[in-house]
């Protein structure tokens, strides 16, 4: 295979567009894709402060790297989720990335700040904390961004993440979630920061290739708590389809965003509009007490009962 840009030997194949790039030309192609999405979706401007949600994985570090290379003012934020050695390693990767490049990395320690960690949030039915972990991340990324005056939170969600989420929402006909799935979630409350996903049209493989070529030192192993998660099963099924039909994931997601979303009731892609402030924490919510505060109560109770058990 030959590089689409320079005709030299290629390294990264993009099967959905029947092209390939060499390691020298690939980063520029990748960053052009990111820039095009930022511009096309009007995600943010160069004068705005961007907070990148950082996990130490390939997607968030590739996004942070690409944004700084493109000249954006992007700081990072990492949440210490308390998932044993995995959290320690991902924290070290995030800190090293920031310090090597002189970038600002904000951090929240969940256990210290809130009295519980993600392993205290296991769902009784699935036995997994993934949904609760998502709530933790959304809450703290938004809160820190709002408190520190960032105008946008950027996450590393890629094509595979978004296609798997869409697949799950279609499988279960989660119409409310379908209506809110998109690359930009506008702010609908002074304390609710705009959310954007600049990598949403780039596959996990393309993002990993960027991270490898740019020598980004990211955490390679999977979150131990995500093993057996539904999202991984959906990704496996979509990749099996992609094997036979290159471009299937892209067509599924982009087709939905272009055509399907408008058919979904309330599919205006904004965050909830009927918001008030949580009576306990003051963050935007549709009810009296926000979902995070309810979940945090459960987490603290579990954490306390674990501590009592070990004290015996």
């Amino acid at each position: 295979m030959r590089c689409h840009a320079c005709r030299g030997p290629a390294n990264v194949e993009i099967r959905r567009s029947r092209t390939a790039y060499c390691a020298r030309c690939y980063p520029a192609w990748f960053r052009t894709q990111v820039q095009e999405r930022i511009d096309h979706e009007r995600m943010f401007r160069r004068d705005q402060g961007i907070l990148v949600a950082v996990s130490g994985g390939k997607d968030s570090l590739a996004l942070w790297h690409a944004l700084t290379e493109l000249g954006y003012r992007a700081d990072g934020m990492y949440i210490r989720l308390g998932i044993g050695d995995y959290s320690q390693r991902s924290q070290a990767k995030s800190e090293a990335f920031a310090s090597e490049r002189g970038l600002t990395l904000h951090q929240v320690d969940l256990k210290e700040a809130q009295g519980f960690a993600v392993p205290d949030l296991l769902d009784t039915r699935s036995g997994k904390p993934c949904a609760a972990c998502g709530t933790v991340k959304r809450y703290h990324f938004n809160k820190v961004a709002a408190d520190l005056g960032y105008e946008v939170v950027a996450t590393g969600h890629n094509l595979d993440d978004e296609a798997a989420t869409l697949f799950g929402n279609v499988m279960h006909w989660n119409v409310d979630y379908l209506g809110r799935q998109g690359p930009v979630l506008a702010s609908t409350h002074p304390k609710l920061v705009r959310k954007v996903k600049p990598l949403y049209r780039l596959s996990e493989r393309e993002t990993a290739a960027y991270a490898i070529i740019e020598r980004l030192d990211y955490i390679l192993e999977e979150c131990p708590m995500a093993k057996g998660a539904k999202s991984l099963a959906y990704k496996g099924m979509l990749n099996a389809l992609e094997e036979e039909q290159p471009g299937a994931k892209y067509g599924f997601l982009v087709g939905f965003l272009k055509q399907g979303r408008h058919a979904v009731p309330g599919g205006d892609f904004d965050q909830a509009t009927d918001l008030r402030e949580c009576t306990r924490c003051g963050q935007p919510t549709t009810g009296e007490l926000c979902a995070y505060c309810k979940m945090a109560d459960r987490g603290r109770k579990k954490s306390a009962s674990k501590a009592a058990k070990y004290a015996r």
Partner: peptide
């Protein structure tokens, strides 16, 4: 990184990197 058409030889030392991450993000 190698494209799928690249020929391999018996002496090659190859690594396979997974790219999938899961959970709710």
């Amino acid at each position: 990184i190698l494209t799928s058409d690249v020929s391999l030889s018996e002496a090659d030392q190859i690594e396979v990197w997974p790219v999938i991450s899961g959970g709710r993000r």
